[in-house]
């Protein structure tokens, strides 16, 4: 038989993280099995570069495969924001699958992934506000609240909600919270557990559909993709797209469920956002959608149709299960 094509995968989170152990590694095994060993995916022991650098690392062929968070590239993936706006889904899996379907149908033409081969996207579950002492129950509670945030939609949200945003790398969250430098963080449940914040946060404010979300892409070097035989390319693609969305979304969603259980065990008070709070957040963040629609128009995309499709898909997926 021919020598197998060996592909290198670089993951910038520990291999013990559920996304790697429950999604990326099993997915790589599926690919290997489906191609009868002709395509083998090796994971590097440690990431090839910092999280942001992974886009370039794949484009330049330093590694063949990686995942990226779209929030790290302001200005490059403007249209991918459609799936991370406030109220974008109740579970990671529904957000992921709906996002892929909409991307596949409406957004390919914007060509935001030029220079790389996008295999699939998946997202995390509903993002919420997790605080140590201060409770968030009304829109006024956000005023001047010190929150650690990342970039992207979280930064937009911080501005719209008038919080005192402290933009620091995610691994610093534990220290910032435990020493009281910040009052809280914006995260999905899974991240609260994986950054070991479950012992320091006391309150969680959760929103139906989430306050925000984040979407990742599994990307591949174009040259590496072209090197595969035509048959293997077909097999790889059949295991990509919606398959990746389901698999990644499920891994992240399962972790959310487990994390919520841990939070309850640590007697974290979980507050469901009141209708008034939801309405106030909707009002303050209405301009996000407007901005997205304008960006879509500028890139020649039918924005209203795409958003309607995304929401219809969400509804269908969430009622179906």
């Amino acid at each position: 038989a021919d020598k197998p094509v060996e592909l290198t995968f670089s993951a910038w989170i520990p291999h013990t993280h559920i996304l790697v152990s429950n999604f990326m590694m099993p997915w790589a095994k599926e690919v290997e099995k489906a191609t009868e060993g002709r395509v083998k995916i090796n994971f590097l022991t440690k990431p090839v570069t910092n999280p942001v650098g992974h886009l370039d690392a794949v484009r330049n062929g330093v590694v063949d495969l990686a995942f990226i968070s779209y929030s790290y590239y302001p200005g490059r993936f403007d249209l991918m924001k459609f799936a991370v706006l406030p109220f974008s889904g109740n579970t990671a899996e529904s957000t992921s699958v709906a996002a892929w379907r909409t991307y596949d149908k409406y957004l390919q033409g914007a060509n935001e992934h030029r220079g790389i081969k996008l295999l699939g996207i998946y997202g995390h579950g509903p993002g919420g506000v997790y605080t140590t002492e201060k409770e968030v129950k009304t829109i006024e509670d956000f005023d001047g609240l010190k929150l650690r945030i990342g970039g992207g939609i979280q930064a937009d949200l911080a501005k719209a909600l008038n919080v005192n945003a402290v933009v620091k790398p995610a691994p610093e969250s534990y220290e910032l919270l435990s020493t009281g430098v910040v009052d809280g963080v914006l995260f999905p449940p899974e991240s609260i557990a994986s950054f070991r914040l479950d012992t320091v946060v006391k309150h969680a404010t959760v929103f139906p559909g989430g306050l925000y979300a984040d979407v990742h892409g599994i990307i591949m070097n174009q040259g590496a993709f072209d090197r595969l035989s035509e048959g293997d390319r077909k097999i790889l693609l059949s295991l990509s797209g919606e398959h990746i969305a389901r698999m990644g979304g499920k891994a992240w969603g399962d972790a959310d469920v487990a994390a919520m259980k841990t939070l309850k065990e640590h007697s974290v008070a979980i507050h469901q956002a009141s209708p008034e709070l939801i309405a106030a957040v909707k009002e303050r963040t209405a301009q996000f959608e407007q901005a997205w629609l304008e960006a879509a128009k500028a890139k020649g995309i039918d924005g209203p149709a795409a958003l309607a499709d995304f929401r219809a898909n969400l509804k269908e997926l969430e009622s179906g299960s």
Binding site: V48, T49, V52, G53, D56, A57, N60, G61, E172
Partner: peptide, 27 residues
């Protein structure tokens, strides 16, 4: 080493990424 293990364009890109990354270091 990377040039031999992977290929030269990779080594070139990887080295550039390392230099660039080493500069922007908040921590």
């Amino acid at each position: 080493g990377v040039g031999i293990m992977r290929n030269w364009p990779s080594a070139y890109a990887m080295t550039g990424a390392v230099v660039r990354e080493s500069g922007f270091q908040y921590l």
